[in-house]
């Protein structure tokens, strides 16, 4: 059984307008997505900004109230606050935020920040708690002198590592990492990601890794879901997505990964332009008349894609 099952999750925001401030329309931030996250794996959630990936992540941690759908954990629907409370849900599911500075309370010392989930869930003695915090700091490679400092005294990478330490404090089973490294520069990104990988090896925690950076996702994730306009356009293993992309949007995203080889600059550009042309020409076949993403169709056991059935058959015939 999966660790967490997301079933047909929908998060809609009302748009109010007019004299009476009535609800006149809705923003379909997340419009019916389903995911299964297994224990110990890293699940990548990729998409452009506004595609609903952060909203999905927040719904899974319980920060966002879904309009419809279920999120099952230990057989209970945790979209209901009562069930979350009963399960001590946030002891098992934690979050790492994108903006490391604003996610740490500027008026609290590092000790109090990391100890906060411990105080709420673990109820340790004062000395045990301090020891725990020191060990957590050690795990993310920070010294004991960080204990009584304030967040603004650390660099971006150090702050993000403090965020990671807080997230693993209660030894959770799933950590939702909402673009944890996109605000950091490249060398620091690698450092933080390696700490996250090390923690995964040591503690067997699962990650829901939300990112728009396909390079980072390739480094981190076993399974990947590509989101667009609030729905999943393609879902599969790393191999499925990177080596056999089927949806035009996935192809377009993959072609946008920057390459550093100067010699192949022209070729890369031509490739990008070809992909973009394909996207523009075929858009009306891959999206329905309202511009919505089509329902997912299974191609293989692991690979699902949102495209018309006849296209799938055609592509499979080409492969054979």
């Amino acid at each position: 059984m999966s660790l967490i099952e997301v079933k047909d999750l929908e998060v809609h925001y009302p748009i109010r307008s007019g004299f009476w401030n009535r609800v006149t329309d809705e923003v379909l931030a997340v419009d019916g997505i389903s995911l299964d996250i297994e224990a110990g794996e890293t699940y990548g959630l990729v998409g452009e900004s506004g595609s609903g990936k952060s909203t999905t992540g927040k719904s899974i941690v319980g920060l966002e109230k879904p309009t419809k759908g279920q999120i099952l954990y230990k057989g209970k629907d945790i979209t209901k606050p009562r069930n979350r409370h009963e399960l001590d849900y946030n002891q098992d599911v934690q979050m790492i935020f994108q903006d490391s500075l604003s996610s740490l309370n500027p008026r609290k010392r590092i000790e109090d920040i990391i100890a906060e989930p411990l105080r709420n869930f673990a109820h340790l003695s004062k000395d045990d708690e301090k020891l725990r915090v020191l060990q957590l700091l050690d795990i993310v490679g920070l010294d004991a002198d960080a204990l009584y400092k304030y967040p603004h005294q650390f660099s971006g990478g150090q702050r993000q590592r403090i965020g990671v330490a807080r997230a693993v404090a209660t030894n959770p089973k799933l950590i939702v990492a909402d673009e944890p490294v996109s605000a950091l520069d490249l060398s620091v990104q690698a450092q933080v990601l390696n700490f996250m990988k090390k923690i995964q090896r040591d503690f067997g925690v699962s990650y829901l890794f939300i990112s728009h950076d396909l390079g980072v996702v390739r480094h981190m994730c076993d399974n990947i879901a590509i989101m667009h306009r609030g729905r999943i356009v393609e879902i599969g293993t790393r191999d499925d997505i990177y080596n056999h992309p089927m949806h035009i949007y996935t192809k377009r995203l993959l072609s946008a990964i920057p390459e550093t080889s100067v010699e192949h600059r022209e070729e890369a550009r031509e490739h990008r332009e070809a992909v973009e042309k394909e996207f523009q020409e075929n858009q009306d076949r891959y999206y329905d008349k309202d511009g919505k993403v089509l329902p997912l169709i299974a191609v293989t056991d692991t690979h699902k894609v949102a495209m018309p059935q006849d296209e799938v058959d055609e592509l499979q015939r080409e492969d054979d």
Binding site: L131, L134, Q135, D138, A146, Y148, K149, F203
Partner: peptide, 25 residues
Amino acid sequence: NLEKKSSISAEDLARLSKEAEEEAT
């Protein structure tokens, strides 16, 4: 589990917290 993965154990607590207090802001 945490104990195994971290090199810090209970004996270091007093020394490390003293170190931290010296560096306090």
